[in-house]
């Protein structure tokens, strides 16, 4: 994975501290062209991996990328599925069974429900596989070396003790998409323990890691201990702690943590994108220099 990965929250009005900012983003990125323009600024700054949710609008972005193969020849996308609000709204409206009926492609579920056949464990894993395929459709022909499960699903399954689904997700991603599975979580220490118990060694995990102890369940100390053990390939997200800490301080902290392979960030302006990339590179350079001296 590349050291710096570009995120998509700013494109979809996800802002953890301000509804006003979120509305401003919504206005700024109303057109797909504005998203592409920002992605191009990130590419110019040397960031060639885009980690994004399987939001409907990403399908348009994928079309643009597919239609410009030369321009985007070394561009990678890390899809994060599912776009949770789509399903959450559907569950509110249709219930859990109704939502599955709406989103699982084909007649598979229809026949299950109608026939009143006995549910077999493997059926549920097959349903999950069909849902993954549905979410992955928009990325056809695009380089997606790592495919993530969103934190709301990862953590829901984690709390329910349904590690089997997490393991099955990883296996299916590998088999069908020849890619690595990743897990986004707000509960890094607990998830890592459970994945290891399920037989997954050195998983790719994307977790909230910041100096402000924001969304680090169990606390910063436990996180730092877990990170220092080097048991997983880590992507640090929410490194600014939702805006709680000034960027230079925040980036210095996360850049100097051991075993953090990548840093995920999102920004809207050229200045913020360039500053963030330069700051991370500066700290990395300093760290290497110190190592060389030692």
């Amino acid at each position: 994975m590349e050291r710096i990965i570009f995120g998509d929250n700013q494109f979809f009005a996800v802002n953890h501290i301000s509804d006003e900012k979120s509305r401003a983003q919504s206005i700024k990125f109303k057109d797909d062209a504005a998203i592409i323009k920002t992605l191009d600024i990130a590419r110019e700054a040397g960031v060639n991996t885009f980690m994004c949710t399987t939001h409907d609008r990403i399908a348009n972005i994928c079309n643009i990328i597919r239609n410009n193969p030369e321009k985007y020849h070394d561009f990678k996308i890390y899809p994060c599925m599912p776009y949770a609000h789509k399903y959450a709204n559907a569950v509110t409206d249709l219930g859990i069974a109704g939502t599955l009926k709406q989103y699982v492609p084909g007649n598979f579920l229809g026949s299950m429900f109608k026939g009143g056949m006995a549910y077999l464990s493997k059926d549920y894993l097959s349903i999950m596989e069909l849902l993954i395929d549905a979410e992955m459709k928009m990325f056809n022909g695009i380089n997606t070396p790592v495919i993530f499960l969103q934190n709301v699903i990862t953590d829901l399954l984690l709390g329910l003790g349904m590690t089997d689904f997490l393991v099955a997700f990883a296996k299916y991603i590998e088999k069908k998409y020849n890619a690595e599975a990743g897990f986004i979580t707000m509960n890094l220490p607990k998830l890592l323990n459970e994945l290891e118990k399920g037989g997954i060694k050195n998983p790719i995990i994307c977790a909230s890691i910041n100096k402000a102890n924001f969304r680090m369940s169990g606390g910063k100390e436990l996180y730092e201990k877990t990170i220092s053990e080097g048991r997983c390939r880590l992507i640090a997200m929410q490194v600014l702690g939702g805006g709680a800490i000034p960027a230079p301080e925040a980036l210095e902290y996360v850049s100097n943590l051991p075993n953090v392979e990548s840093i995920l960030f999102g920004a809207s302006s050229r200045q913020n994108i360039e500053n963030t990339v330069q700051t991370i590179k500066y700290h990395d350079f300093k760290k290497e220099e110190q190592l060389a001296i030692a």
């Binding site: 953890h16 501290i17 709301v152 953590d155 829901l156 709390g159 707000m186 509960n187 607990k190 402000a212 102890n213 924001f214 969304r215 680090m216 369940s217 169990g218 606390g219 702690g241 939702g242 805006g243 709680a244």
Partner: peptide, 11 residues
């Protein structure tokens, strides 16, 4: 971010 309680499990 500065007012939230720390929790043991987040969902």
């Amino acid at each position: 971010t500065e007012l939230a309680d720390e929790v043991n499990f987040y969902l």
